[in-house]
Design a protein around this nucleic acid. Structure first.
Length: 165
DNA sequence: TAGGCCATCTGGTCCT
DNA sequence: AGGACCAGATGGCCTA
């Protein structure tokens, strides 16, 4: 680094110094921006990891056949949506007709879900979660894999479900 | 090899 | 100002 410019007689030293300062501040700005970006990337990565963890938890409570089938993200969300709809439909039907013996209460969807699903209600048994027997994509106007877990229930849309986290 | 899925990066926007 | 959220872009991996 040369400090000769300090002794330049005219205004050139001022300009040089300013230019140098600007260069330095631009470099500093660049590194500052860069470090902020890296931090933001880190947070974003973390956020997505948390999102994926939540999605995995959701997968864990959804019945899948075969059990080692891993649903994609979109499949998980769609299936969860339909599954909730089917469960509420089951409740609604159960409330409509009185039972002699009290039901054994729905088990965790992940456990023995298949038998329960088929026994509990036509709504649930209609809600297939077998990726090997999907509804056609044309039925739901979506891509080839996405609408796999559609309920073949009434035309009425599934009820809105409020989820508290 | 094309298409689907995914992780990551990035810039923009909104909120605290 | 900094963090959260979002959507678009990109590249890698896998499968039919």
């Amino acid at each position: 680094m040369s400090w000769n410019i300090m002794f330049e007689p005219d205004g050139r030293k001022q300009r040089l110094r300013r230019g140098r300062c600007r260069a330095r501040s631009e470099a500093a700005l660049h590194t500052l921006r860069r470090s902020r970006r890296v931090k933001a990337n880190d947070r974003e990565r973390n956020r997505m990891h948390h999102l994926n963890a939540a999605l995995d938890e959701l997968r864990g409570v959804l019945p899948t056949f075969p059990e080692d089938t891993k649903l994609t993200k979109i499949e998980t969300l769609r299936f969860a949506h339909n599954y909730i709809w089917a469960l509420s439909e089951t409740l609604r039907l159960a409330e409509q007709r009185p039972r002699k013996a009290p039901p054994a209460g729905p088990p965790s969807p992940g456990s023995d879900a298949g038998s329960w699903l088929s026994a509990a209600s036509p709504s649930l048994s209609a809600c297939t979660s077998d990726p090997s027997s999907p509804a056609t994509s044309e039925d739901y106007g979506y891509g080839p894999r996405e609408p796999l877990f559609a309920c073949h229930g009434p035309a009425a849309p599934p009820p809105r479900v409020s989820l508290s986290v």
